[in-house]
Amino acid sequence: MPTLKAHGLAVTPPSGWDAEIYTRDRDPRIMTPQGMQEVVPPIAHVANFGLPPNRGDFGGGAVELMESGAVFVALIQYDQADVDTALFRGKGIPWPLSPDEFDPNNLQRAFAGQSGVQRFFVAGGRPFCLYVVLGSHRLRATLVREVNAVLESITFD
């Protein structure tokens, strides 16, 4: 099982899984609510299906392809200035996750049968958002075990 390392993140996906750690190109059209240029953060995507090359930060373009046994994990670093905001302050690494934390209403884009969870936390002094999508809410007990195995392999430099 190879370990991917980039942008201060490392993950070891199981054999047969797809993963990518990257930063996308800055889009000059995207501005923050404060009128600033967007910050292009490091992003890690891990999935047990073939990730399409063109995806949104939260898996748009990939989650549409998910079948019932599919798992998608997104780890998105936020602007360092956000680390002391209420969204992140005092929140540590949220895994291992529990099946009870997953809910179809947590999805960024709702697809029938899918379920998700979103957690904000600080690791290594850096603010992150964890977003996980399961292909089947009914199979969450089984799929969450796979998710936790992947999350346990993540390290922060």
């Binding site: 190879p2 991917l4 199981p14 054999s15 047969g16 899984w17 797809d18 990518e20 750690i21 930063t23």
Partner: peptide, 20 residues
């Protein structure tokens, strides 16, 4: 083997091949 390397845009990536 799974394919591990870099994307042309500079990201680190692995494409699952075995066990899919």
């Amino acid at each position: 083997h799974d394919i591990t390397g870099l994307t042309p845009l500079g990201g680190a990536a692995v494409a699952g091949v075995v066990g899919t």
